[in-house]
Design a protein around this nucleic acid. Structure first.
Lengths: 348, 348
DNA sequence: CTGAAAGCGCTTACAG
DNA sequence: CTGAAAGCGCTTACAG
């Protein structure tokens, strides 16, 4: 096809046969040479590559992929790539896939099962080799099966799903949140609120359970009123401050769903004239890059985002290479990071 | 091809001919029916769609695209998708492309020209229909031409390039930063530092110019020592606080490169025991969602990220639809957002 | 070491 | 309203 380009230039589509004709060779030889096959003599290969470069040849992956049924495309779908928690996971996936020359296609599902299914279907249409996903709330098992049954293996991150033996990489949420809760108990806090998260995800249930377990173990009664579910963002944490500060139980500390909620909550607390870290102790979760530069710097739980991303990408690549990765859940062990946002109990 | 799937199930590849044979029709009819062609009788069409569903047919876009030379793929490449400034642009692009059933492929270039060229080449190999990009520092004109000459139109966002008449959408940086600078001058500030940014981008040069112009207009001498170039992130702003606070000129205010730098700087100032918004006035740039919940809430300049994204996506879609979009630079007019991080001059 | 030919799964004139 | 046939640009046995 000829296309007239602005400026009067005409781009002529260069394909294997263009190179073949210009060199008096067959397309088979060109194809092999460009992919560094040892079947082609070294000097022929060099001549071919040189010619491809001068002609401005562009490899047509659609045509190749139609033939080989491999596309080199890997899909990644998470709740929201703008959330730095996922951002840090994605960065790790990106650097792992980069060195294997895969192209990765990213999408947000915003916890819409429809949007997620749509993405899976698009990926299948493009011949995607595999998909890494943090499943949307309410994802039916069939949606994952759709991918797997069509030869596109799936790896789960951050959230798990029941009734499915797909490799899953995530932090040990129950254990992690108990670290934060125990840290506060150790500082003398007894009235500890839990801010954010939802029972609709495995992560949400696990974290609440970890909080409850830690309190019980310390002999502290669990007061459901001290739980403020919902917030998952800075904005959410900021808005929850009003509710938190008006609780009649007067909590002296807050275990937050994640760092974003914690930072938002601290901003809200400061706006009300109290000093986070002194008047109210606050813990985060994830240890985002931002946690250490917040004011006050945030005591939080390292959740291994980079590990999750790296391992998930590795697992997928291994699977595509034919090795049989163990299915099931792989837990990353969280670690406590103690900073300035928590301190000894301080009666208001 | 038959693939044996875990669990003993065997997935049979369903294609147009599978449906055609099962219904005693030709593939041409199936193809037309699935794309809602009026050439196919309504009841035949319904029967075909029904059958496609029950057989679990998956449309092979690679094959279709090979034939039509349209892929429905649009590439987007920016410095860093984890930066909320780009995140807000991407969100707008996403929602604009979504409703036109395009797939978009995202990538970071981290200001590496090589990584960016790599992405453009991959996109060409996949038959991308177009690309929206915020060009990496040092992008040669040929890299954009490579895309255009191969029939893949490019739209630039946030940064512009010389010697190229490609549609470009960005904020009016020089004007915007002068708004912030004038605001501080109006509050009585005379020693105003500028923190962050780089002369290597058009944006960086424009913003510095806007700052210089505003000072000159007010008859204030421009002191190059008051410029601390470099920082573009929260971390960067946080670290710059030390340098800023030790300037012998003792600036009473800081015009920051963006909201991230401003928030980081405020954290650093607070860490040093000073109160941002009272002891030191700080302005941001972009008006990220976060600006209004920072402590103190951030005085900043609305930079129209959502507008930039929406317009760029629209321009590309229009171009793909054949309409001739005007090339050249389209400036979004910034607006001042006054909050709590700035106030009357306060002598330290 | 190189070439001729089939085929991946679609769409699109063209016939009827 | 439906079908037969060519062709998009590759790769892969198979021959030589």
């Amino acid at each position: 096809m000829h296309r007239s380009i602005k400026g009067g230039k005409v781009a002529q589509k260069v394909k294997l046969s263009t190179i073949a004709e210009s060199l008096g060779l067959s397309t088979a030889t060109i194809s092999l040479a460009l992919r560094d096959s040892p079947l082609v003599a070294a000097d022929t290969r060099e001549k071919i590559k040189e010619q491809a470069r001068t002609l401005g040849y562009i490899y047509n992956r659609r045509a190749a992929s139609l033939r080989t049924s491999r596309s080199g495309i890997i899909g990644v779908v998470v709740h929201d790539i703008m959330n730095p928690f996922y951002g840090e996971i994605l960065k790790a996936i990106e650097s792992e896939l980069d060195r294997s020359r895969h192209t990765f296609i990213l999408s947000n599902h915003y916890d819409s099962v429809d949007k997620q299914r749509n993405f899976i279907e698009t990926l299948l249409q493009l011949g995607g080799d595999g998909v890494i996903m943090s499943p949307a709330i309410g994802t039916p098992v069939e949606d994952i099966r759709l991918a797997e049954d069509n030869g596109m293996p799936a790896i789960l991150i951050a959230r798990q799903m029941e009734g499915l033996d797909v490799p899953t990489y995530r932090g040990d949420d129950s254990y992690g949140i108990s670290l934060a809760t125990n840290h506060l108990i150790g500082l003398g806090h007894r009235t500890i609120a839990m801010i954010g998260g939802t029972d609709q995800t495995s992560t949400g249930r696990d974290r609440y359970q970890g909080y409850v377990n830690a309190l019980r173990k310390a002999g502290i009664e669990v007061d459901p009123e001290l739980r403020i579910p919902g917030p998952r963002t800075k904005q959410g944490g900021f808005e929850a401050a009003v509710h938190f500060l008006s609780l009649p139980q007067k909590p002296t500390a807050a275990v937050c769903w994640n760092d974003l909620v914690a930072i938002g909550l601290m901003n809200g607390i400061a706006r009300a004239g109290l000093v986070p870290g002194r008047d109210i102790s606050v813990t985060g979760y994830d240890d985002l890059e931002e946690a250490s530069i917040a004011t006050p710097s945030l005591t939080t739980v390292w959740n291994g985002q980079a590990e999750v991303g790296r391992l998930a990408a590795r697992a997928l690549l291994d699977k595509l290479a034919g090795s049989h990765e163990p299915d099931g859940i792989h837990l990353i062990k969280p670690e406590m990071r103690i900073r300035q946002s928590t301190g000894p109990i301080h009666i208001r």
